[in-house]
Design a protein around this nucleic acid. Structure first.
Lengths: 157, 157
DNA sequence: GTTGAAAACGGAGCCTA
DNA sequence: TAGGCTCCGTTTTCAAC
């Protein structure tokens, strides 16, 4: 069905496609010394195996009215399965929450919020995050400047 | 030179390309009621204007030996420009640091680290993060499970 | 690999503000 | 008249055999 082990060619494909998701199979083949068809089936397999989740255009939120990025640490009231899953379901549904992780340590969830400005953040915090179920405590931290934001994992193997 | 205002067609293009970066111009045109050529020049303009930063394959780090994600809060010794820029330059150069933000509030930088496992994290912390210049304090938090990780900003205008 | 289909590219001409 | 569009021929890429 699918090949689990990854070889050097797959690594080359993954590294290249992470940097340019629109590179042609032919061009990939010429740098990796494989035929276009060989590249094609490998890319398909990488997608079916879930190594490539999707192809996406990476946009600049600053230029699209989502320039304020905040990270929010969340502590919930009780750590029952119902409460945790209820929180997670609601978090997934909110457009302003770009990322949500269940964390180890001093807090339970870490959220990445993207909004236009502090006015909107204030509204989101009160009207939306405030209504998330079972929350005991929020603490917000804001991004002043983005030093690095890399989507491409450098794969060496 | 370039068109700053974004219209409804651009919004449609951006929303679609964020979800599928490999959708064809022709297909985009048919849903947005424009010709293939019109879509093509708009996508070019969106790239030149920096609204689209790049196209990328989004991969699954768990399947690529980068399954442990940690967030690290960093407090630096002094907030001089030299110290801050020195830290940022070094952070940018480290492959394990996928994201680095200069933050407001109780700590100075937030790092997203992707490594294979706790053994590797321990080494990275001591050998690499420990050598970042001017650091006073680290605090690490780890992702137990990823509830949501969205790269597509929903653009409404 | 080869071949037919599909998509991208690039230019000419049209329409509108 | 400049910007944006459509139309269409050419080149490149895709996809199936």
């Amino acid at each position: 069905m699918k090949k689990t082990p990854i070889d050097k060619t797959d690594i080359g494909i993954l590294n290249a496609l992470q940097l340019n998701g629109r590179i042609s199979n032919r061009q990939l083949g010429s740098t990796l010394h494989k035929s276009e068809s060989a590249i094609k089936v490998r890319v398909q397999h990488l997608q079916e195996a879930g190594l490539i989740k999707r192809f996406a255009a990476i946009v600049e939120p600053k230029l699209l009215g989502r320039g304020l990025i905040g990270y929010v640490q969340v502590i919930v009231e009780r750590h029952t399965e119902q409460d945790l899953t209820a929180f997670m379901e609601k978090a997934k549904a909110l457009d302003e929450i770009m990322e949500c992780y269940h964390m180890t340590g001093a807090f339970d969830f870490l959220l990445r919020i993207a909004v236009a400005d502090m006015d909107e953040y204030s509204k989101v915090l009160m009207k939306k995050l405030g209504n998330l179920p079972g929350v005991r405590h929020f603490e917000s931290f804001f991004v002043m400047s983005e030093v690095k934001n890399e989507t491409a994992y450098s794969i060496g193997e």
